[in-house]
Simulated scan of single mutants.
Amino acid sequence: MQTLNVLDNRFSPFNTYSTLRTDAHVAGTFTNTVFDKRQILAFMTQLQTTLDIDKLLNIFAVEAARYVDFSGLYFKSQSVNKTLPGSRKAKKERRFDLTITDDFIGTLSYGINSPISLTNYKVLQQLHLCLLHPLRNAIAYHAAMQLAMQDALTGLGNRRYFDEQLKRSMHNANRHHSLVGLVLGDLDKFKAINDAYGHVTGDLVLREFANVLRQCTRNSDSIFRFGGDEFAIIVENADETALAIIENRINLALTTNVLLSKYQLGCSIGTTFMNRVDNEMSFFERADEILYRSKMQAAAHLSVV
């Protein structure tokens, strides 16, 4: 895979009054197109209308498609990994490193089926220059939003993020006629651990349990901590056994994980699938009721023991 550096050049040809005539790929044929300063300004104005990375890449892709025949567009940075919707596998991949001076923004990769001409390659570099600052701003905004939606102790999503993601997941499930499941967990004996060993140990246990949840779920599942010792997992595109599998994995991990088994940590779990008449409240309340019954059973068992 070839890597090409795009440098921040304040003396870009797009900053002059000259016009750049290049080949544009239109409807399967190449025609001459004038790319003048007004077009550049219009393009840059479009790029500055959003801080959403997906929308930004889509705006960019529409313009880039005039000059490059690509079937896929991919952006990757340290914190972001995006694929343009509709991207398909191509014969080759051409990758560009996007940088502003010494500040590395990320890599932009094109899936291409035919070579990029030297003229169009130069135009593409100039388009990247237009993208650099809007993209860096969008990444910074994305990072700030992630922090606002994140539990500081465990790195999991917080309750605010859960509410948004649950609504989005239910909408997608209704739209695509797929299953979405909800797993609620409430730690047993956690208060006793805090009281006996202190909050430093309690925080260590919470972080380790969060890691266990990551190991027990798929990358596509969303995990949250509500605060205290309450956790939730949203399972999209699930099958009928998915929730049972996750519950069994969690229970097994509680007995095999060195740290959690040392403190005899337990977890009451409530699981349910969304039905077509659910709203966010009814879906959550049903899982919460099942969790409550599970917790009462656990408490009854402990009292007998």
Rank of each mutant, 00 (worst) to 15 (best):
I112T: 06
I234H: 01
R207V: 15
K295P: 04
R88C: 07
A152W: 05
G155K: 12
S169R: 02
S303I: 07
T119V: 12
F209N: 04
Y121P: 05
V304A: 10
L265H: 06
E236K: 01
S114V: 12
L135S: 05
N275Q: 11
A64S: 15
D203N: 14
R249Q: 06
R10C: 08
D36N: 10
L291R: 04
S77V: 05
I59F: 13
L265S: 04
I112D: 05
Q39I: 02
Y67E: 03
L41F: 09
I250K: 04
A196M: 09
N15L: 13
I139T: 02
F60A: 02
E240D: 12
T19Y: 09
L153F: 13
N219I: 02
E289H: 13
S71R: 06
Q126V: 10
L147I: 00
Y263S: 04
G181R: 10
D103Y: 14
M274D: 08
I59M: 12
R88T: 15
V6K: 05
A287G: 07
L153R: 10
S109F: 06
R159L: 12
D52K: 09
C130Y: 13
T101Q: 06
R21L: 10
K55H: 01
L147T: 04
L260G: 02
T50R: 14
F162N: 07
L84P: 01
N275T: 15
L302Q: 09
S18D: 02
H171D: 01
D8T: 09
N275Y: 05
E289F: 08
Q2I: 07
L204D: 12
V277C: 00
S268L: 01
N158I: 08
K295D: 02
L51H: 00
K122T: 14
I112F: 04
A210Y: 14
R218H: 10
H301I: 11
L260F: 13
C130F: 04
I233T: 08
A299N: 09
N219G: 13
I193D: 00
L291K: 00
V26S: 02
T3C: 03
I105P: 03
G227C: 10
K37R: 13
D8N: 12
T101K: 14
